[in-house]
Design a protein around this nucleic acid. Structure first.
Length: 344
DNA sequence: TCCGCTTGCACGTTTGAAGCGG
DNA sequence: ACCGCTTCAAACGTGCAAGCGG
């Protein structure tokens, strides 16, 4: 069985040391430690404070805020592949009721897992470190039959993007390489087909250039809507959203110590007990598959169980809570597959 | 009836081809 | 011929409202 490595971090918002890392294990860091920074963190935090919503459509919708990161600690002349996938925050479905999100039952069965590869991949470390990299063109869809390689999500479910850095000269060799994985608490969002929280709409219109038509001189209906949005904001409490009591709210219930990121990494072995996935990212469709696929042959040919039984469980894995024995949960990382294994 | 999803609309932004001048 | 700059139209991306369907 193939071994993968994952990077974990501690982001306990209660601790001043939350973003600080313990020194790496000697062997793991001989090649240097990769650090990832969320570029538009302030914007993400603004959205996060009221509950980020991402529109998903049948034909795919871009994210806003979009994922933009910067990297350091890469080897300048080694090639890397940078990828993103979306991970469920918990195993619940939500509904917007009375100006707040409520749990609406168990989550739908997981849609096909897809991974979006940054279009520059593979590229040398110097390229990735030269400037921030954006996943602007990544699109989200609710169409499980999507043929465009968009990330498939369920509406009314919560997700967060997970970034993967792996040293590889080509996408062929990605699955055999060591992975370092990063995620950011404030990038958690609820997938929706129409905005539920008017505060989110207001924030998006204020920050998204494509929505400017609805900000100034827009349609009559839009002006009307803006007025109502303003009104709701006037009497609204931006932190109200964070005071809900469903299990996942712990992600938002406390102010996040999000400043001064220092997501240097700590490598961890993860058994790659990945499960079969029937779909593949269109990004990979351009590349033929190796003729032999040892891992795929060893993995069960069925959909994986839901990777995250509880929000707390998930939060522990990804650092929302400080967990002194985080490493003991290493195996859980592989339950949500990084790739669509039918194509690898 | 309720609620989530799809579709069409109007508008601004982005992109790239075409034209022009140095 | 080449390069850089400007212009402009088409394509794209956006949120909203209306209508549909489970």
């Amino acid at each position: 069985m193939q071994n993968f490595y994952a990077c974990v971090f501690s982001t306990d918002p209660k601790s001043n040391l939350s973003m600080r890392r313990s020194p790496p294990a000697a062997d793991s860091y001989q090649q240097g430690c990769i650090r990832m920074t969320l570029e538009n963190a302030d914007l993400w935090k603004s959205f996060h404070s009221i509950g980020t919503e991402m529109i998903i459509t049948k034909h795919g919708r871009r994210m806003f805020p979009h994922c933009s990161i910067s990297l350091s600690g890469l080897q300048p002349f080694a090639n890397y592949v940078i990828m993103v996938d979306m991970v469920p925050v918990d195993s619940f479905k939500y509904k917007w009721k009375k100006e707040q999100w409520e749990v609406a039952g168990k989550a739908e069965p997981q849609p096909p897992c897809r991974t979006y590869m940054h279009p520059d991949s593979p590229a040398p470390g110097s390229h990735w470190m030269k400037q921030s990299l954006s996943f602007l063109k990544m699109k989200l869809t609710n169409n499980t039959l999507d043929q465009h390689g968009h990330i498939i999500l369920h509406s009314m479910h919560r997700y967060y993007p997970r970034f993967h850095v792996t040293q590889a000269d080509s996408p062929y060799t990605v699955r055999w390489g060591p992975f370092q994985t990063f995620s950011f608490p404030e990038t958690t969002f609820t997938a929706v087909t129409a905005y539920q929280n008017p505060k989110i709409t207001k924030l998006k219109i204020d920050h998204n250039p494509f929505a400017k038509g609805f900000r100034e001189g827009g349609t009559h209906s839009h002006k009307k809507n803006q007025a109502s949005t303003q009104q709701s904001l006037k009497g609204g409490d931006l932190s109200a959203w964070a005071l809900e009591q469903d299990p996942s709210e712990s992600l938002h219930a406390e102010p996040l110590a999000l400043h001064d990121y220092d997501y240097s990494c700590e490598e961890q072995m993860v058994p790659a007990s990945v499960a079969y996935q029937p779909y593949r990212s269109a990004e990979y469709a351009r590349f033929p598959l190796p003729s032999t696929d040892v891992d795929a042959s060893q993995t069960p040919n069925h959909a994986p169980p839901h990777p995250l039984a509880t929000a707390e469980h998930n939060a522990q894995q990804h650092g929302y809570y400080h967990h002194p024995h985080q490493h003991s949960h290493a195996a859980d990382w592989s339950q949500y597959p990084l790739f669509s294994y039918s194509c690898w």
